[in-house]
Structures are given as structure tokens and as C-alpha cells.
Design a protein around this nucleic acid. Structure first.
Length: 505
RNA sequence: GGCGCCGUAGCCAAGUGGCCUAAGGCGACGGAUUGCAAAUCCGUUAUUCCCCGGUUCGAAUCCGGGCGGCGCCUCCA
């Protein structure tokens, strides 16, 4: 089996091989925790999860690390004074308003002016969302998901090393900058080489900032700023680290190697973030590569448009799951499937209709599983990867994560009635270890929707319906069935009586 | 303007020179089944791959040119 991935670094699809046989070290840029993560963020995180789970099925031991950016960086809004705002302060302001409107529950954040409380609140929200959607690394918190604010010392060590090695300097404004001219490979990932940056820079850069730097493309490693809401002592004065440095540090520190196998993120991170990470990491270690494979997920569109708060199509995971997008609750596995079903390097258009389509596919897989379980009395056979269905599934994903071809293997197969249900369950277990939608995650238990009063009421109606049917009182039976459907349930009358369940979306 | 992805049915989307008069899913439609439904099963659903040229015996697939969509293009994140 040959695994091939598209590598942003070379702009080509290349054969994947890990540096150390059987082990893959993968780093994914994680969320900022100033607000709830949105579905676009999760498309990127789930793309990384797909790589990880696929490689595991293919036999690798995958070590997956992600960061949480909780340092209060600055906004990119060009406000009047040209300095931007502290993101944590912006969040604090918003939270005060959200508390009044109830969007942030009472007691969740006692003191919005405490950035650590804000970070903790949104970190927990992220982890909840991530676990619901079956993001495997979220179950490895805090071992494999690291907070930037807990890595300040190693960041300072790396900055000091970069200064020693001639890759960084203290500018005229006291800020520590990375010298891009000291790193000839700068621009290799994004194509934004120093020549191109010169010609494309235009008049967007303010004169005073440039004066402090040796080259316009030099970027910040440490900013002394005694007014910043989160600050730490450093050899360069109290302040805070640059945005890029945390990822370089965490990846190298957590893995203990100079070169990792895969680095993932959203396509917006290619430049400047990942370009700068490479410059920092390779500058500090002297290695030729920071990561061998750079893989980027394309942006998510919503109903054909870029997701933005001003357009009102800016959805968080909980907006979708709690029904604020479709008008009814959506099962997490449906959202997972929806965000996973398009190729990661294509435009993914998130739509209400697409979500409903995904619900159909997920239900098909879940029903298949139920039918097999009933037929096999729960027995699950051990199957090897050489099984034809698993073989084809892996082959499809081996081709740069061709998820559509992989689903085209699974779905027709799951439409058949298997000759050997125990074997089918074994196959499904392997396939579901990657898809994780039927159920959301086999190994990790998954999240069953909690039964509530409404469920109990509906169960009672099902019994009444059965009684009416036993009397052949069809008008009453039809009336009850209609009531159950009106409550938003799907009804099924079978050999063993009537059952009702909530639709997946 | 620079760099980079991409453009196949109502929607998602496979296919990367001949087995393509183009997978698979969702949806839709017709039928079987059902007291009626649901589920399930069977069948139908692109002579055509954004447009125009070219290469070739042969192109959705290669080349050139258009058109269209998306991302990034710095010190603030």
C-alpha cells in the first residue's frame, strides 16, 4: 500500500513515509480561545483527525499534538491609533454583554476581566465540542493539547537561541524580531519569497514600524509591553510572545525531535503563520525541515458564501447541534460527517440541505450496524485489513484522503444484507474507527442523546398506538402516529411493536 | 498586480489519455411491501464533464487562451 498526500511545501502529491517506521508525529494548529470555535475551525480540526485515524487504521502509531492559543494577541482591526486591540480585552467586553443576554451562562465566567477565566471557559467549550464531534486528540487533553501560556519559558529559550544563532535581533523599538534575511528558505512554503513580498507589499505598512526592523518581512518574536493584559517577565522586558513561536516550541518540545512528519492547519495559516514557524524552527534547530509534510484544509463556505459575522452565517458547533441553524437539533455524528465528506482541498460548501443529506448517510450506516447486531447476536468477528471492503476503503484514502471514493466503497456495501453479520460488524468497526459516525466513536463511547420527559411521553404514545392497532382502530392509530410525528420523531411500526426516535438532523 | 487551489447531474462528489454512451451518496420520481406510514427492496434520474482553440487514431482527463469561484500577500492577530 502506498500512501500519497498533497504536500503544500512542494505543491505536489507525494508518497508519504514517516521518518521513523510505524510512528507518525503530527502537529495541528489549534484554536484561539477568545470565543466559541466555529464550524470552519472544526472542518480543519476534523481534517487532521481524518489523517490521524486513517494512518492508525493503516497501521501507524500516530502521536498527535495540538495547541491552544490563549495568549491575548492583538486584533487585526486597523483602529484609529493603528495599534489594534488586545483580543482578550475585546473578548472581555463581549462577554460582559453576552452575560446580560444569557449567551454566556451566569457563573460561567465570574470575572470577565480575568483573561485566564475567559481562556478556561472557551477551552472547555472547545473540548466539549471537539469530543462531541469525535476529535480524538481532544480525549488526550491535557497531554497532547498544550496551552501557549504554559509554554512561555521554552518560547523564551527558543527566542534566545535564535538571537544567539543570528536569526533574531532586538529592534529599535525594543521588540525582538526574526530576521527573514537570515533564513534563505523563507517563502518556500507559501511562494511568498522576499522578492515577491517586496513587490506586493504596496503601501500597507506604516513607516514607524518599519523603521525599527531590518527587513519589512521581519516578524515579532517577543513584544515588551507593560500595558498588555497578559504579560510575562523576559530578558527583553515584560511582555508577550509573538503568535508564531508557540507552535514551533510546542511541536519540537512535545515530540523531542527537530523534524516532525506532518503539520496541518487551515489554508489561511500557510502565510504568514506556517512560513514563520518554519523559519523559527529550522533557524533554532538547524534542521532542513520542520515538518516533512505540510497539509492544509481549504476554507469552508456557508451557503456559497464566506462565513462572516456581518452576513449572519457565522455558525459555532453548538449553533448547529442545538438547532439554531436548521430549526431542529442535529446529531453530532451528522455534523462530523458533513464536515468530513468533502475532499479537504476542495471548496466545502456547508448548507442546511447538505446537513440533511448527511443525516441520511449516517442513518444508513447506523441502521446497517443495528441490523447486523440483531442478526449476529452482537458477535463481532476479527477482520484483517486485507478484507476486500477495508482494502478498498484504505486504498481510496491512501490517495490523498479521497474520502468520496472511500464513502463510495462503504455506502453501497452498507446497503446490502451481509451474508455474515459478525464479519460485517468487524469490517464496520475498522471503517468506523476512521469515520467515527456509527456511532460517533466506538472506542470512546460516543454520546447518546439523553432521554428526557419528551422521550418518555413519546414512548407512551407508541404503546397507545400499538393498542389501537391491536384493536384495528385505524383512525385512532393514525391520529397517534401523527401526534408523534408532529413532536418531531420518526415512527417505525415493526414486528415487535412501534418505536420512535428523533431524527439525526 | 503576485503566489496557490479549484470548476463534472437539483445538491455533495469519483474519475487524471481508450473498459466513461462518466462511480457512489443525498434528493426526486415510479414500483414491490405495509391497514396507512416509516424502514427495506427493485427500477428511473449527465450521449456529457465552465467556454473556445490545439495535440492525439482517441480527451472530462494533456497543452494554450478565456470566463468563474476561493484563500493568502507582513509586523496588528
Amino acid at each position: 500500500m502506498t500512501i500519497r498526500f498533497y504536500n503544500t511545501l512542494t505543491s505536489r502529491t507525494e508518497e508519504f513515509a514517516s521518518i521513523e517506521p510505524q510512528t507518525v508525529r503530527m502537529y495541528s494548529c489549534g484554536p484561539t480561545v477568545y470565543d466559541f470555535a466555529h464550524i470552519g475551525n472544526f472542518r480543519s480540526f476534523l481534517f487532521a483527525d481524518l489523517i490521524r485515524r486513517f494512518l492508525e487504521l493503516a497501521g501507524y502509531d500516530v502521536q498527535h499534538v495540538m495547541n491552544i492559543t490563549d495568549v491575548g494577541h492583538m486584533t487585526d482591526d486597523a483602529v484609529a491609533d493603528g495599534a489594534g486591540e488586545d483580543k482578550m480585552q475585546v473578548a472581555a467586553q463581549r462577554i460582559k454583554e453576552d452575560k446580560k443576554s444569557g449567551k454566556v451562562p451566569e457563573g460561567a465566567i465570574d470575572n470577565p476581566d480575568d483573561p485566564y477565566q475567559i481562556a478556561r471557559y472557551y477551552t472547555n467549550a472547545f473540548l466539549d465540542d471537539a469530543r462531541q464531534l469525535g476529535l480524538k486528540v481532544a480525549f488526550e487533553y491535557p497531554d497532547n493539547i498544550l496551552h501557549a501560556t504554559e509554554q512561555i519559558a521554552p518560547m523564551q529559550e527558543m527566542i534566545a537561541r535564535l538571537i544567539d544563532r543570528g536569526h533574531a535581533y532586538v529592534g529599535g523599538d525594543g521588540v525582538v524580531y526574526y530576521s527573514v534575511e537570515s533564513f534563505p528558505a523563507y517563502g518556500r512554503l507559501s511562494g511568498n519569497t522576499l522578492d515577491h513580498l517586496h513587490s506586493g507589499a504596496g503601501g500597507r505598512i506604516s513607516e514607524e514600524h518599519q523603521a525599527a526592523k531590518r527587513h519589512p518581512a521581519d516578524f515579532m518574536l517577543w513584544k515588551p509591553d507593560s500595558h498588555h493584559i497578559m504579560k510575562w517577565d523576559s530578558p527583553w522586558g515584560p511582555g508577550y510572545p509573538g503568535w508564531h513561536i508557540e507552535c514551533s516550541v510546542m511541536a519540537l518540545k512535545r515530540f523531542g525531535v527537530d523534524t516532525i512528519d506532518i503539520h496541518t492547519g487551515g489554508e489561511d495559516l500557510i502565510f504568514p503563520h506556517h512560513e514563520c514557524e518554519i523559519a523559527q524552527s529550522c533557524g533554532a534547530t538547524g534542521a532542513d525541515y520542520f515538518a516533512r509534510f505540510w497539509m492544509h484544509a481549504r476554507f469552508l463556505l456557508v451557503e456559497g458564501e464566506k462565513m462572516s459575522k456581518s452576513k449572519g452565517n457565522f455558525y459555532t458547533v453548538r449553533d448547529v447541534l442545538e438547532g439554531r441553524v436548521t430549526g431542529r437539533p442535529v446529531h453530532p455524528s451528522v455534523l462530523r460527517y458533513e464536515l468530513l465528506k468533502s475532499h479537504y482541498r476542495s471548496n466545502m460548501n456547508f448548507t442546511v440541505k447538505g446537513l440533511q443529506d448527511s443525516a441520511g448517510a449516517v442513518k444508513r450506516l447506523q441502521d446497517f450496524r443495528s441490523r447486523c447486531e440483531a442478526a449476529s447476536s452482537g458477535e463481532v468477528a476479527e477482520v484483517a485489513n486485507s478484507h476486500p471492503v477495508i482494502r478498498e476503503f484504505i486504498d481510496a484514502l491512501s490517495d490523498d484522503l479521497n474520502i468520496s471514493a472511500a464513502l463510495a466503497v462503504v455506502l453501497p456495501w452498507a446497503a446490502e444484507t451481509p451474508a455474515d453479520p459478525a464479519e460485517a460488524l468487524g469490517v464496520l468497526r475498522e471503517i468506523n474507527s476512521v469515520l467515527a459516525v456509527a456511532p460517533i466513536d466506538l472506542e470512546l463511547g460516543g454520546t447518546a442523546a439523553p432521554a428526557d420527559d419528551e422521550d418518555a411521553n413519546v414512548q407512551a404514545l407508541c404503546r397507545q398506538l400499538d393498542e389501537a392497532r391491536a384493536r384495528k382502530d385505524w383512525p385512532t392509530a393514525d391520529e397517534i402516529r401523527k401526534q408523534i410525528i408532529d413532536r418531531g420523531y420518526n415512527v417505525h411500526t415493526g414486528r415487535d411493536g412501534t418505536t420512535a426516535e428523533r431524527p439525526l438532523a
